[in-house]
Design a protein around this nucleic acid. Structure first.
Length: 979
RNA sequence: GCGGCCGUGGCGGAAUCGGCAGACGCCCUGGCUUUAGGUGCCAGUGGGCCUUGUGCCCGUGAGGGUUCGAAUCCCUCCGGCCGCACCA
């Protein structure tokens, strides 16, 4: 407000005292006063502190906590954005708060808090741009977010609000990393075990070292190499996604389908680099199987199954002839071993290691011109093809996917069943990263192979009988025939050229039978076996960034890796002069990463005593990815101050342990966006399972019930050039169009956010109406799991409801109670108990939109009634308390209660009043409503039928038609079927 | 291309088990209160028709089916959203 307010303003106010809004009316000003007072009370009294069974957060006054029903409610870990929240962000937080408050009022010990996933790229980029330390900007952003969220009245246990950037927190992130590093997956036991147990096996000789030498004869480096093949966290040179534009490598999950970084949209290249990996693939089967134990949306489970991509099939070896091959075999993975007789050529991925070994010096006689790519020798052809394939971006590959390219290697392999020579190609439609990077091509029964065979004029052989009317000559086909629902043909050895005991015939077998038969035949000859393949890759776990957890790993002067002991944790993020990653031209695929931490030589070079005296070491300079801190935070919420253990077992068992309702254990409710379907949720499950295997947690899964909340969208207005204009300044032109500064603009739906200039801040709405109104509005907009558009104008509906609620209980002119002491009449009790019954069910089922509607109905009933009996007032206040806690606390206090209602008993419906005294029965004739009867809810079918048939309106409607049948569903419906 | 989810008034949505379609809210219209605006309160508010009332007909993306009865179940199509995408 400026100081040059026109004189008329205050003068008017002064001369017209009637205009002044009553201090007792529920206005934004009064709401603000009530809300800040109650927020202070809750904070001062620690209202939402949840006692633990044991440890620093145990409360002797709380009694036997372990015997109390618990409810662990979580929101997905937020990144503290520097630009503040918009009204879409707190949707899930409000919902979990409403549910948590409801649970508290139904006798649960509720753990609900919110911490911060505070390592991250934006703070680092901000640091690069401004020189401000990421910790400074991150903590400022966290403080601002805490302030914004506090205003909403969220009942969080602030003692448990951890942040991943706190050394006390990431000390345990590093500790868990070491647990994973120091374990291996015992496939026979089906679980992770300490690496020391593996070492013991090697030492005892019960498990031979790979090269057969006794373990004691191996050098330290050699032993470390062997163990590196087993450790669940390992460092290895692997083909990775290198993103020069970001200056870091990325996990597969962070790369989009068109080969760009999910953050920043920079091109991503394949590059061989030494990186940290997590052996998540060893948990593939368990990650799939245990989904069945979880209460998650089916869509999310399906996404995880698809991501892991389990497929059953067989490995088959194809012997390669020709020079240089030296008795080598190419191993392929196929899901269709039943079509082996139809394999007429093979394809290797261009980067397959065996390619160079099998390439002959010259083209075999009679090589098809189209196969050579115009090169003089196979080696030249291969080199040229590799070069063009490597130069192609993934986008180009995508576009070119329909046109198959490739080149002949000059080598032939032998089909192990038919004995026929098959040419070996390289082509980029075979990916190195999947299966064995090599396929047997069955063009008659695979669409991709068919297209390739057509392009290169390769033979085809039909081995699955077509069921769609086509003949068995693939040359006449338009595409491959790939059904499973048929029988095998043309798949038998001729009796002449194979010895009897080696013969196999698949003819006449179903696809499923043939798979088994051929797999057994191959296994019997040692040239194949049934196997399971996964799409899931090991998880790339290192990043070349500053603002992340350092690895608790050092290298000695021989380059041998050493894990730091627990006593040296945490390894703190060092100070550096320059935070920026070495980024490159986004298209410079030949660049390679340099870590920001390597710049601080004082930090990198250390002298440590790791048990054999003080020696010089170099620290690992990669940092962990953003996911690390969020992979286990649910554990630290439980025991945030525990300095001895990551979490005390008694506390873990209480909050996360398995029960009849949650067989794998886990948090009772986890609410967040569907965008974390595979990344965070898969990684967190993996870590949790490792910790379970190693005995640190009793639960098998971190999150029992998952709920995906929808997004709040908002209208976007664009000018003629297509640029968004500030949505708040757009005006309706009255003819269905919109203008901004007089210029016509177009409306469309969009996400809410700064860039689209349509963000609405929760502070704005709280200023205008109060936080309770904002909470109520967000909860009433629609079902929690559906996206819905924000509508500024509609907020007033929730505000009016609270005003009417207030007015039903307290006078707007004096602030005094206006409730009456009369007992509630029967109609009022019925309205009340029906509301209680409905709202309880809605609360438990997270259907807050209909819960609000029912509360409004009850309140409207009281408005019409003209007065509010005290007993009803108390109940309605408790009913709305989870939704609008500040106004509820204030009214509760006015009603004479000295204690907060946070732990008051939620109203329970009296069944006697839930049923109406009389219900409206609908009488239909042929399904159309013709009459309504007021009947007792206890009426029998027979009585109701008699009553219905006697009703004058029914008699008139039936007329002289014959009644054929009468369906009675007492007490609500009678349907008369006439002839 | 494959897989999944979803289509209900002017708008957001409700109908929990196959049984009164449109709860609740917004918008809009009329009335009362008010000097006025705003707030508040009351009434109306899916479409159509007329005989204006306890009235009739139509109506849940389109078409078909099952059923005494379908927004709800089944089939085909149309439209939208999401995920995966040469995964052998």
């Amino acid at each position: 407000m400026s100081e040059t307010t026109p004189a008329s303003g205050p003068a008017e106010d002064a001369t017209e005292p009637f205009r002044a809004e009553s201090a007792f009316k529920y206005t934004a000003a009064l709401a603000a006063d009530i809300e800040s007072r109650w927020q202070d009370v809750w904070e001062k009294e620690g209202t939402f502190n949840a006692p633990n069974p044991v440890g620093a957060l145990a409360d002797p006054a709380a009694g036997d906590v372990a015997a109390k029903p618990h409810s662990f409610i979580m929101d997905m870990f937020p990144y503290p954005s520097g630009s503040g929240l918009h009204v879409g962000h707190p949707l899930g937080y409000i919902a979990t708060d409403v549910f948590a408050r409801y649970q508290r009022m139904t006798g649960h010990n509720v753990l609900h808090t919110l911490g911060y996933d505070a390592f991250g790229l934006p703070a680092e980029q901000h640091a690069v741009a401004t020189g401000e330390h990421p910790r400074v900007s991150t903590e400022a952003a966290m403080a601002n977010m805490r302030r914004q969220l506090r205003r909403l009245g969220l009942g969080h246990d602030s003692r448990r609000s951890i942040a991943t950037i706190d050394p006390d927190y990431y000390r345990w992130t590093q500790w868990i990393f070491l647990q994973i590093f120091n374990s291996w997956y015992d496939g026979e036991a089906g679980r992770a075990r300490p690496i020391a147990e593996l070492v013991a096996q090697f030492e005892a000789g019960s498990r031979p070292a790979p090269d057969g030498r006794p373990w004691a004869e191996l050098t330290g480096a050699e032993r470390e190499d062997v163990l590196g093949e087993y450790r669940l966290a390992y460092s290895k040179e692997v083909p990775v996604n290198w993103c020069p534009g970001l200056g870091t490598v990325l996990a597969n999950e962070e790369v989009t389908a068109d080969g760009r970084s999910e953050r920043g949209n920079f091109p991503v290249f394949k590059s061989n680099l030494r990186q940290w990996m997590m052996r998540i693939t060893t948990y593939s089967d368990r990650l799939i199987a245990d989904l069945d134990l979880l209460d998650w949306p089916e869509a999310i489970k399906q996404q995880q199954r698809n991501w892991i991509g389990r497929s059953e099939g067989a490995r088959v070896e194809f012997a390669v002839d020709g020079q240089g091959a030296g008795g080598r075999a190419i191993t392929v993975f196929t899901t269709r071993p039943d079509t082996l007789f139809g394999a007429t050529y093979m394809v290797l991925a261009p980067e397959h290691a065996l390619v160079d070994a099998i390439v002959p010096a010259a083209w075999p006689a009679g090589t098809h011109d189209d196969w050579t790519g115009g090169a003089a020798t196979p080696a030249e052809a291969v080199a040229a093809y590799r070069a063009t394939a490597a130069a192609k971006s993934d986008v180009e590959r995508q576009v070119d996917a329909k046109v198959k390219t490739g080149v002949f290697t000059g080598a032939y392999a032998t089909n192990p069943v038919s004995g026929e020579p098959v040419p070996v190609f390289i082509a980029d439609y075979v990916l190195m990263g999947y299966g064995t990077g090599a396929i047997m091509a069955v063009p008659a029964h695979d669409h991709r192979d068919f297209a390739f065979a057509r392009a290169f004029d390769l033979p085809m052989r039909c081995v699955v009988r077509p069921t769609d009317g086509r003949d068995q000559d693939p040359h006449t086909w338009d595409d491959a025939f790939d059904t499973y629902d048929s029988v095998i043909v043309n798949s038998a050895h001729s009796t002449d050229d194979v010895a009897t005991e080696d013969r196999i015939s698949l003819d006449g077998l179903s696809v499923v039978e043939a798979k088994q038969a051929v797999t057994a035949w191959l296994a019997g000859r040692g040239i194949g076996e049934g196997t399971v393949n996964y799409r899931l890759r090991d998880w790339l776990f290192s990043r070349q960034r500053y603002w992340g957890e350092p690895f608790p790993i050092v290298y000695d002067e021989d380059g041998v890796m050493h894990a730091l002991p627990d006593s040296m944790l945490p390894v703190e993020v060092p100070e550096v002069e320059d935070y920026s990653p070495h980024t490159y031209d986004p298209y410079d695929s030949t660049s390679s990463p340099k870590t920001p931490l390597s710049r601080n030589e004082d930090w990198v070079n250390v002298e440590l005593d790791l048990g054999d005296g003080v020696k010089k070491y170099r620290r690992e300079t990669n940092t962990m990815p953003n996911w690390a801190g969020s992979c286990w935070y649910e554990l630290r919420y439980i025991d945030p101050a525990n300095g001895e253990k990551v979490v005390d077992p008694a506390n873990e068992r209480y909050w996360l342990g398995a029960t009849a309702e949650k067989p794998a254990g886990g948090a009772d409710l986890y609410v967040g966006g569907a965008e974390h379907a595979v990344l965070h949720l898969l990684y967190a499950r993996f870590w949790h399972k490792v910790l379970h295997d190693l005995g640190h947690v009793s639960s098998v899964e971190p999150f029992h019930k998952l709920f995906n909340q929808g997004m709040i969208t908002a209208d976007v207005y664009r000018d003629e050039r297509g640029f968004p204009v500030p949505a708040a300044e757009v005006e309706d032109d009255g003819h269905g169009g919109y203008t901004w500064n007089g210029e016509a603009v177009k409306r469309e739906a969009g996400k809410m956010g700064k860039s689209l200039k349509n963000a609405v801040a929760p502070d704005e709405i709280a200023d205008q109406y109060g936080a309770d109104t904002l909470r109520l509005y967000e909860m009433s907009m629609g079902p929690l799991d559906v996206s819905r558009p924000w509508d500024d104008r509609a907020v007033v509906g929730s505000y009016r409801f609270l005003q009417r609620l207030w007015r039903n209980i307290a006078s707007e002119s004096t602030g005094e109670l206006v409730v009456t002491d009369e007992p509630a009449d029967e109609a009022t009790l019925r309205a009340l108990h029906k509301a209680i019954d409905g709202i309880r069910g809605d609360m438990a089922g997270l259907r807050f939109n209909t819960a609000v509607a029912k509360a409004i109905e009850l309140n409207n009933f009281l408005v019409k009634r003209g007065s509010t009996p005290r007993e009803v007032a108390e109940q309605i206040v408790l009913l709305v308390a989870p939704l609008a806690p500040h106004i509820a606390e204030e009214l509760w206090r006015k009603l004479g209660h000295a204690e907060s209602l946070a732990y008051a008993d939620y109203p329970v419906a009296d069944p006697a009043y839930v049923v109406d005294e009389s219900v409206t029965c609908v009488v239909q004739i042929k399904g159309k409503v013709k009459a309504r009867l007021e009947v007792s809810p206890e009426i029998t079918d027979a009585d109701l039928e008699t009553l219905a048939l006697a009703d004058p309106a029914v008699v008139a409607a039936v007329g002289d038609a014959a009644v054929r049948k009468v369906i009675v569903r007492a007490p609500k419906l009678v349907n008369i079927v006439t002839g």
